[in-house]
Design a protein around this nucleic acid. Structure first.
Length: 161
DNA sequence: GCCAACGTTGGC
DNA sequence: GCCAACGTTGGC
């Protein structure tokens, strides 16, 4: 059972297309390796900065109303993404060397569904959240840091006290 | 479905 | 090391 570390110094946001993998899927699975991230900056954060127990906002992208839907947490230390060596996977990377894997991930675990989801439009209209990369036009990072106080603010907005 | 913005690739 | 071409992300 994974829980958020109340003393965590850093929170995060991860994006997922719900048609591909939704927060409900994560709740069903309990936890899941965060596979398929193929962006070096995002990889570096997983490899170097994400700590077990860090809070995570789970965001649904590529839908009519993109929104933060749930709370999750980092549930493992970093390790190589197994899909990079799986020829059957859409994430297979022929250039990755098993002796020095290119793609590193952590496990993400579901914590709770937000009673009230928070649409991107609301994040953009709130001065406390409108500096998040996800609210910036053109930002395609699928994973990025969120200041811990902003995380708590978003939880409050979402109906969690 | 469109397209702007961005990251990556590869030729030179 | 530059930069044009390309592929992908993701809002709309």
């Amino acid at each position: 059972m994974s829980a958020i570390n109340p003393n965590a110094k850093q929170a995060w946001l991860v994006k997922s297309e719900p048609d591909d993998y939704s927060f409900a899927d994560l709740q069903r699975d309990g936890a899941s390796p965060w596979t398929g991230v193929r962006n070096y900056q995002a990889r570096n954060w997983m490899r170097d900065s994400m700590c077990i127990g860090d809070p995570v906002l789970f965001y649904h992208s590529n839908i009519p109303t993109p929104e933060v839907v749930g709370i999750a947490t980092v549930a493992s230390t970093p390790y190589p993404d197994p899909t990079q060596f799986d020829q059957a996977s859409e994430y297979f990377d022929p250039k990755s060397d098993p002796n020095g894997p290119r793609w590193i991930l952590v496990d993400i675990a579901a914590v709770e569904l937000l009673p009230k989801t928070i649409p991107l439009s609301v994040l953009r209209n709130d001065p406390k959240t409108n500096t998040l990369p996800t609210t910036q036009r053109g930002t395609r990072l699928s994973l990025h840091p969120v200041p811990i106080e902003v995380f708590h603010h978003i939880c409050n907005q979402g109906g969690i006290s």
